[in-house]
Nucleic acid binder design. Sequence first.
DNA 1: TTTATTTGTTTGGTAAACCAAACTTTATTC
DNA 2: GAATAAAGTTTGGTTTACCAAACAAATAAA
Lengths: 169, 169
Amino acid sequence: MTGIDLSENLEDYLETILELEKTQKVARVKDIAEMRGVLRGSVTGALKSLAEKGLINYEPYSFITLTRKGTAVAGEINRRHRVIKNFLTHVLQLDPQIAEDNACRMEHAMDRAAVDRMVAFIDYMETCPRTDASWIQGFARHRQGESDSRPDCKDCMTRSAEEHAQNKK
Amino acid sequence: MTGIDLSENLEDYLETILELEKTQKVARVKDIAEMRGVLRGSVTGALKSLAEKGLINYEPYSFITLTRKGTAVAGEINRRHRVIKNFLTHVLQLDPQIAEDNACRMEHAMDRAAVDRMVAFIDYMETCPRTDASWIQGFARHRQGESDSRPDCKDCMTRSAEEHAQNKK
DNA sequence: TTTATTTGTTTGGTAAACCAAACTTTATTC
DNA sequence: GAATAAAGTTTGGTTTACCAAACAAATAAA
C-alpha cells in the first residue's frame, strides 16, 4: 500500500520517532536510544537508513522529524499496534503489560487484511446484543476454570432476551 | 518453560524438520532447503546451530532427526501455529492462504500466555449458546457491509432464546 | 569566553542469515 | 567397479543490527 517494506527494526525506530514527535515535538538520538534500549551509535546507522528511504528528515547533529511519507508509514504501524493491543486487552482480557509486549511483536507479523478483520470483529462484538458486557464477563468466568459447572448457562439466553426486550421499550 | 530461546529463523527450521519427519520419516538437507526457499549451504549452518543447542541429531552427511527436546520445542511452535491459524480462519474468517501467511509470522510473536488465552476464547465462543453458528454467520454478513441495516437484529435475541429453549426439551 | 558536559558520529569488531560457487561425499547408473 | 549425478559441505563475501570506545560537535556552566 505505502510501497515501502521495512525490517522489523526500522519499523520500531519509526514508531519510536513518531512517539517522540508527539510528546517532545522533535526526536533526539539520545531519546531514541533510550526508548529502544540501544546505544546512541546504533541509532545513527538506523537514521541514515530511514533517511535514505525518504522516511525522516535527517542531517547530522540536527533534530529528527518524520517526512510526510514517514508519518504515513509510522501511523500505519501505530494503528496496527493499537488495534492488536485493544484486542488482546479487551477481547482476550490479557494483563495490560503482557498485551503490550505481545502487541509490540505482533504488529510486525500481521498484515493489513488481518488487522482490518480484527477491527471488524471487535466492532461486531461490540454492536451485537448477543455479545454484550455479560457475555464478556462470562468469558472472564469461563477462563477462570468455572467452565465445567456453567450453573446458569441454561437460562442465560432467555434472561438476556427478556432484558433486551425490556430495554427496547 | 522449555528453557530455550531461539531466533525466528531457527524456530522455522525446527518446524520444517518436524513437518518432514512426519511426512518423510526423516529430514534431508535438500528438502529443508526447498521448503524454506534457501540454498542447501544455508541449511548446513542452521543445522549446526540446532545441533549445538541439542535440538537435533546431526552428523555431517547423515539424516536429521529431532531429539526429545527438539520434538518438544517444535511441537510447542507447531501448536502456536495451529491455534493462531484456527483463530484466523474460523473466528476472523480470513482466507486460508492469508491466514496461513499471517500465522507463520504470528507464531513467533505470540507468547504462551497469549496463545493459551486465544484457545480459551475459541473454546468459550464454541461452547456458549449465545455465540452459535448463527452468530458467526452474522459476522460474515456484518463484515460484508450489511452492518448498517441490521434488519433482524432487534428480534435476534428473542428468536435465539426460543430456538434454544426448543432444543433443550 | 574558556572549560566541562552532554549529545551525536565514526570506526572496528561480532553475530546471524543469507548467496554463489567450489569442493567432497554418497548414491546411481552403466 | 568406474563414471556420473545428486546431495551435502565449505569458503568467501554481503547485509543488517548491534556494541565499545574513540572522536567531534553543540550546549551548558564557570
